[in-house]
């Protein structure tokens, strides 16, 4: 009895102190605002997902995923959005294929070499500038660069003008890679900074070169970081519209270019993605088929959420598969 009273004593005394009711008014208002902000954001996210889910599922027919779109005013004849899905996947593949190796390389150079220091600082600022640049700015810049006649091999030469068309899957993919690049650099850099220094030294102390250490020790150690950066970058690419409209030609269907190397025709061709399809069919675009826009938006949202889940999984799971859940002591 006495002992239990003693045990209960301190907890009774600390409980009111723990609760916000005893806090100063300003702190309570602050807590309330933070709480409200978090709840609002959650509600907003739920609302978007629910609204798009309900609208999308009610409009979505499975056939949309397998039918080519056609330009028809009659919505029952305008087909599905197979081509935009293809476009989204192809563009994402090109963008990540360019961004991941370069981004990993930049991060490795920054963390493992980073000399001369002024150059490293310049590279860091450059990455930040690219990260902050609106995609429409990157798109306009890309258009200017790739319209140069010298780049005609990436699209085609415009008839009657000394300029290239400047729009194709490779060109849009190259521009998209700039969106993903800073995310890859950031994720890999963080992962490299997490690797304890004595791990690098252990490899060097076995008579290995820095290059061998990077390939056999550091790259496996930062694989989860690379995976995270890749998934984040993919999400960014999938969600972008400006570059698609300016640099992919924004044709309704996927069109291969004429001539050139056989395998290269599609890459030099034009097309659309889910985002540009949604834009085109929304009340803001010329299509005026909001039902299809909703259905496509639902598919897009599902794709992005799936990628986010994948990114989280990879970040958590991959390392533990590699290390058995353990990590190095720092």
């Amino acid at each position: 009895m006495h002992a239990s009273a003693e045990l209960a004593g301190p907890s009774r005394r600390t409980r009111p102190r723990d609760s916000a009711a005893s806090w100063p008014l300003a702190d309570r208002i602050g807590l309330g605002l933070c709480w409200a902000a978090g709840v609002t954001l959650t509600l907003l996210a739920t609302a978007i997902v629910l609204y798009m889910g309900v609208k999308g599922i009610s409009q979505l027919h499975l056939s949309y995923l397998f039918q080519h779109p056609t330009a028809d005013v009659d919505q029952s004849k305008s087909g599905g959005f197979l081509d935009p899905i293809e476009g989204t996947l192809l563009l994402t593949a090109i963008g990540t294929a360019i961004a991941v190796p370069i981004g990993t390389g930049v991060a490795l150079w920054l963390v493992e070499y980073g000399r001369p220091a002024p150059l490293a600082r310049t590279v860091e600022s450059a990455v930040e500038i690219i990260a902050g640049a609106p995609s429409i700015v990157i798109a306009v810049f890309g258009l200017v660069v790739f319209s140069q006649p010298a780049f005609a091999f990436l699209s085609f030469r415009a008839t009657g003008a000394d300029a290239a068309f400047g729009r194709s899957f490779v060109i849009a993919g190259a521009a998209m890679s700039l969106l993903a690049l800073p995310l890859v650099v950031g994720a890999v850099r963080e992962a490299l900074l997490q690797v304890p220094n004595h791990l690098r030294e252990a490899s060097l102390a076995l008579g290995k070169t820095v290059g061998a250490t990077i390939r056999r020790v550091l790259l496996p150690a930062v694989r989860p970081g690379i995976a995270t950066g890749t998934a984040l970058g993919m999400g960014r690419i999938i969600g972008d519209t400006a570059i698609v409209i300016l640099l992919l030609g924004n044709t309704l269907g996927t069109e291969s270019a004429d001539g050139g190397l056989p395998g290269f025709r599609l890459l030099r061709g034009t097309g659309s993605t889910l985002t540009s399809y949604i834009y085109g069919n929304s009340p803001a675009g010329e299509g005026g088929a909001p039902e299809k826009a909703y259905a496509a938006a639902f598919v897009l949202l599902a794709l992005v959420i799936a990628l986010n889940v994948l990114a989280t999984r990879l970040a958590r799971g991959n390392l533990s598969a590699l290390t058995g859940g353990a990590a190095w002591t720092r």
């Binding site: 030294e201 252990a202 490899s203 102390a205 056999r216 020790v217 150690a221 290390t323 190095w328 002591t329």
Partner: peptide, 13 residues
């Protein structure tokens, strides 16, 4: 001249 460190540091393999 090989070395063993203070913290166990096996490689991620």
């Amino acid at each position: 001249v090989s070395m063993v460190f203070q913290q166990p540091n096996p490689f991620p393999m």
